Amino acid sequence: MQSSGRIRSRFRPLLFGALACGLLGAVFTLGLVYAIAAFGGARSMGTLLLAGVALNALLGAVVSALVANVPDEQAVRGIVFWLQGDLEARTGRTC
């Protein structure tokens, strides 16, 4: 039986990798929103806001398509609950 410290150290690179991918995705999306807003030379707040809303709709559709194509029904339920902010099996302790 493994101790919890060894298990945590085994998953720590996975956690940091997921955080790094999330951060890179957020920075890329932010740059893409700014590039779309600045495309026509207009850098107004309204253009930036509309570009963000449009990209949100597009990326939300991509996530929905990925979830719809998951073959395991139990995994789909877990994904949907996680996307809605489910923290059921979490404790106060982190990795």
Rank of each mutant, 00 (worst) to 15 (best):
95 C>M: 03
8 R>I: 03
85 G>Y: 04
30 L>C: 11
32 L>R: 15
34 Y>T: 13
59 L>V: 03
86 D>R: 13
37 A>K: 09
4 S>T: 11
49 L>N: 03
35 A>R: 13
13 P>A: 09
74 Q>M: 10
23 L>M: 11
37 A>M: 06
12 R>M: 11
11 F>V: 05
38 A>T: 10
78 G>I: 06
39 F>H: 15
37 A>H: 07
35 A>Y: 05
12 R>D: 07
63 V>F: 03
74 Q>D: 13
92 G>R: 03
84 Q>V: 00
72 D>C: 05
26 A>D: 13
81 F>A: 12
9 S>V: 00
9 S>D: 02
43 R>N: 12
33 V>L: 08
93 R>H: 06
79 I>S: 02
7 I>M: 09
79 I>P: 02
90 R>P: 00
43 R>L: 09
25 G>R: 03
44 S>R: 11
76 V>A: 01
49 L>I: 04
70 V>L: 07
95 C>S: 12
52 G>C: 13
5 G>M: 08
71 P>I: 03
52 G>F: 09
23 L>A: 14
67 V>M: 01
24 L>Q: 03
68 A>N: 01
67 V>D: 02
6 R>Y: 06
64 S>C: 04
67 V>C: 01
67 V>G: 01
59 L>T: 13
33 V>W: 07
9 S>H: 00
20 A>V: 06
52 G>Q: 09
61 A>R: 12
16 F>K: 13
38 A>L: 06
16 F>H: 14
8 R>G: 01
1 M>Y: 08
45 M>L: 14
2 Q>E: 10
61 A>S: 14
31 G>S: 11
85 G>L: 05
6 R>F: 11
62 V>P: 01
7 I>G: 01
69 N>P: 00
85 G>N: 12
28 F>S: 13
58 L>H: 00
5 G>E: 09
67 V>H: 06
15 L>G: 01
86 D>G: 10
89 A>G: 01
56 N>E: 07
32 L>Y: 15
43 R>T: 10
22 G>I: 09
92 G>E: 08
39 F>Y: 13
68 A>D: 04
12 R>K: 09
35 A>K: 15
16 F>C: 13
93 R>V: 05
59 L>Y: 05
72 D>S: 07
44 S>M: 02
36 I>S: 14
11 F>W: 03
41 G>F: 04
3 S>K: 02
41 G>V: 05
12 R>E: 06
61 A>I: 07
11 F>N: 00
44 S>G: 14
42 A>Q: 14
6 R>M: 11
79 I>F: 03
19 L>Q: 10
2 Q>G: 04
6 R>Q: 13
12 R>T: 03
64 S>M: 10
42 A>T: 12
81 F>Q: 08
34 Y>R: 14
13 P>G: 04
